[in-house]
Nucleic acid binder design. Structure first.
Length: 822
DNA sequence: CAACATTGTCATCAT
DNA sequence: AAATGATGACAATGT
């Protein structure tokens, strides 16, 4: 994210904020690259095969052990380093570019040289990270090998040391296989060889997130035996995953949007989470140092990266489990990764690249080291190699991308930076801001739309979440039933769509100017979607805290609305709360920096409506900083552990009475906060407040009632749905019964005819064989009792039908033999 | 005013 | 042990 205000590391109640700019490092590296190209401030000359390359020694040293050693041993300016003969220009040049852009351009022709050079020069970020994964992909003729994940690859290497590279060496002839190159360079969606290291090649059902068939993993990959492969690998509902997510909603948010965008989810075992889990490049090796993910194709890399963060076995990041805000921030960053590579533009580029057979590898570590280390900064224990956030991202991009994007260093960072810029850091790279009209037209409808998006994002691709989405659908139906301006809302939704269209157009233009052209409108939508989806859950408290504090705060407080509405200027008593907001508010979200405005207006109004407090009662609301608000999704959906649910304040009277009581009790926070805070935040709030027994009881009472209220609503809705489903079932069964009855009638008629023909045949047989009917009846009775002949309409028993069959065949044979006899 | 629907709340159980 | 969700039951309110 471009801006994040974190204060977790600061002691509670002390309003210390940290400004973090994730675009800063991106800019730095970009500038350095620019300087290198213009030979500005370069202090080292690298000679390779007689050719000189100017660069900055510190930059080179930061990426290469070789240069670290050589450059540090030479103090003066004008250092000239002649590389060993083994290092070739074709191998070194891409590496140099990689150093300054974090993107590695390579083709099947020079990949080995690059790797060789990287190995010689000690490129930490590339050697094991990239080539250990990449080369086998290039040289493996088996598509199955492409389904392996990076982490697994690393693990496999450990399991069977040297197997990979030796395979490479012995299979160089496969290098020319276009398949390999294409795979590496392209999106794996339609390919028989999974380009992404972290998933199988089979697209999954976009709804279930599961695929029907799971190709057998390559022999050397043993997912089952891998220590990383626990239940959480296979089960999206695994506790571990949820723990890592902080809440399941996060996981879902993370998982869903791809499906929403028809971007297939690749899974390892048919479920989306395994894939994400299995994408952990670092966890397997206990840190990214050993093997940062070298992922292929933006889409899937994004899949992986974004979910990795939520994974428990995530190296050092795992240690931060429990630091919710850190996770939230991290998850948000990962959303950017997801944002990356998803888009038509990139798709086209990949196709073009596929044709050229040239790939571009972006190093996650470079990105990290280049700046997107927000989480890192918050986790002092993380070193460069273990920087969790970006180390999961190893998208492979086409060369054009790198060139076209000035912010080549760290796409994700740039994406974030874009938003960050938009928030004032650098208008030059801004994404078009939402029109002001958005706020006006947004209102309820947009809030609803955004919420739907959030819920969509939260729900698709995961069964449980779908359940919740259904709940949301139900809730919407309830809303419709209540006649809450559904038409108007649709109108607003349409308006929102149009606005987005306009935004897209404008955005394309601006992005072209600012070097963001690789971000398609679709990608941006994805970003919005993700941001909203994720942030809705991640930051449920802030909006409520901000907004719901209003009803609670009396006129006296409203007068000092600046302090009431602005969490950063709230009473010192609530400083810790400020931190709470800031660490999980839209301010953290790179997407929402540019998106929250319209949405917030919608949610504001929604909340206002819910609380029965309109704008008139909230004079400060309009003036409050938008970035300080984040969407609060009032949802009846359940399933999350209560961390994400915002309170649906339906009961105005209750809320008012609560507010009155709260005032009487002199609660230091509002009822809205009580209701809207997540469980953890709520407990945190209570912990930070010294409340009397009465106050505590009240707070818990209010919270319990509100939760129960929404639970009752859900329950009733479910019940109604159940009834409806049963009614549908009854109808269906009725229809089936009618059908069966008709069929029965037909069968009875057929049976009657059959009996008639049989009796005729019997009679003919008697007459032709000159037997008396009695004589014939004796043997025939064994098969065809007369009673049945007399009343053929009587439901025949299966036994009777069985008896009839040989008789019928007998009759048929006899009738067939008749002509011969005659 | 009765009948019905809706909604909030409580009690209880399960997780 | 506490918090939470689900659900049956009851009461208040609205239609």
């Amino acid at each position: 994210m471009s801006i994040s205000m974190s204060s977790l590391e600061s002691p509670p109640r002390s309003s210390v904020f940290t400004f973090e700019s994730s675009v800063h490092s991106c800019h730095v590296l970009r500038c350095l690259d620019d300087q290198r190209r213009r030979d500005l401030l370069c202090d080292i000359t690298v000679v390779v095969e007689g050719r000189s390359f100017r660069a900055h020694r510190s930059v080179l040293a930061s990426c290469s052990k070789y240069f670290t050693h050589r450059a540090s041993s030479h103090a003066g300016p004008g250092l000239v380093i002649t590389l060993p003969q083994e290092v070739t220009v074709s191998g070194f040049e891409p590496l140099l570019q990689f150093v300054y852009t974090s993107k590695l351009l390579f083709s099947k022709d020079n990949v080995m040289e690059i790797r060789h050079c990287a190995s010689i020069l000690g490129f930490r970020d590339l050697d094991s990270a990239c080539f250990d994964f990449l080369l086998p992909k290039f040289f493996s003729s088996s598509s199955a090998s492409f389904q392996r994940m990076t982490c697994c690859k690393t693990r496999c290497r450990r399991q069977s040391p040297g197997s990979e590279l030796s395979d490479i060496d012995t299979n160089k002839d496969v290098l020319d296989d276009d398949k390999g190159v294409r795979v590496v360079s392209d999106s794996p969606v339609e390919q028989d060889v999974g380009g992404a290291p972290c998933q199988s090649s089979q697209p999954t059902n976009s709804v279930t997130g599961c695929k029907s068939e799971t190709p057998a993993p390559p022999p050397e990959v043993n997912f089952q035996s891998d220590t990383q492969t626990d239940d959480s690998l296979r089960c999206p509902k695994s506790c571990k995953f949820q723990l890592a997510c902080g809440k399941d909603s996060v996981c879902l948010d993370v998982c869903i949007p791809e499906t929403t965008l028809d971007s297939p989810v690749f899974t390892e075992e048919g479920c989306p989470l395994p894939q994400s889990r299995s994408c952990l490049p670092c966890s397997s090796s206990g840190g990214c140092k050993e093997g940062p993910a070298v992922e292929i194709s933006g889409e899937n890399s994004s899949h992986c990266s974004q979910t990795q963060t939520n994974q428990p076995g995530h190296g050092e990041v795992e240690e931060r489990v429990g630091e919710e805000d850190g996770e939230k921030r991290e998850a948000a960053e990962e959303n950017v990764d997801k944002y990356e590579g998803v888009g038509e533009v990139e798709e086209r580029r990949r196709e073009a690249e596929k044709a050229s057979g040239v790939c571009c590898l972006r190093s996650p570590l470079m990105e990290v080291s280049s700046g997107r280390t927000v989480s890192c900064e918050q986790s002092p224990g993380l070193d460069e190699g273990t920087v969790g956030t970006a180390s999961h991202r190893c998208p492979l991009e086409e060369p054009g991308l790198g060139h076209q994007s000035p912010g080549g260093v760290g796409e994700g960072g740039c994406v974030l930076g874009g938003r960050g810029h938009r928030e004032g850091l650098d208008p030059a790279v801004s994404i078009p801001s939402q029109p002001k009209t958005e706020q006006e037209q947004g209102g309820r409808g947009e809030g609803e739309e955004e919420r739907r998006e959030m819920d969509r994002g939260r729900g698709e691709g995961e069964e449980e979440r779908r359940e919740m989405d259904r709940g949301e659908e139900e809730r919407r139906e309830m809303d419709r039933g209540r006649g809450q301006g559904e038409e108007e809302r649709r109108e607003m939704d349409r308006g929102e769509e149009e606005r987005r269209e306009m935004d897209r157009d404008r955005g394309e233009e601006e992005r072209r100017e600012s070097g963001w052209e690789e971000r398609s409108s679709m990608e941006r939508e994805v970003a919005e979607h993700l941001a909203h989806g994720l942030w809705s859950d991640l930051s449920s408290p802030p909006p409520s805290l901000l907004q719901d504090s209003l009803p609670e705060t009396g006129p006296e407080n409203i007068q000092g609305s600046s302090s009431t509405l602005n969490p950063r200027s709230m009473s010192p008593k609530l400083d810790w709360l400020n931190q709470l907001y800031l660490t999980s508010s839209t301010g953290d979200c790179p997407f929402l920096h540019g998106l929250d405005r319209g949405m917030d207006s919608g949610t504001d109004r929604e909340m206002d409506r819910g609380t029965g407090l309109g704008d008139a009662q909230l004079p400060g609301c309009e003036g409050s900083s938008q970035s300080e608000k984040s969407p609060c999704v009032s949802s009846l959906t359940s399933g999350d552990d209560g961390d994400s649910d915002c309170f649906d304040m339906e009961g105005d009277s209750e809320s008012c009475s609560y507010s009155q009581k709260a005032r009487e009790l002199q609660l230091p926070f509002s009822v809205g906060q009580i209701l809207a805070l997540s469980r953890n935040d709520f407990q945190l709030m209570l912990r930070h407040q010294t409340l009397t027994r009465e106050q505590l009881d009240f707070v818990h009472d209010v919270r319990r009632r509100s939760k129960n209220r929404s639970a009752a609503q859900r329950c009733r809705k479910r019940k109604l749905d159940c009834i409806h489903n049963l009614e549908c079932e009854i109808d269906k069964l009725r229809t089936e019964k009618d059908h069966l009855m008709t069929e029965r009638t037909n069968l009875i008629q057929m049976k009657l005819k059959t009996w008639q023909s049989v009796s005729e045949l019997c009679q003919r047989a008697c007459s032709e064989s000159a037997l008396s009917p009695k004589q014939l009846q004796v043997p025939a009775s064994a098969y065809c009792p007369l009673s049945a002949l007399i009343s053929p309409t009587h439901p025949a028993s299966p036994r009777l039908e069985r008896r009839l069959q040989p008789l019928a065949s007998l009759s048929a044979s006899s009738s067939a033999s008749e002509p011969r006899e005659s």
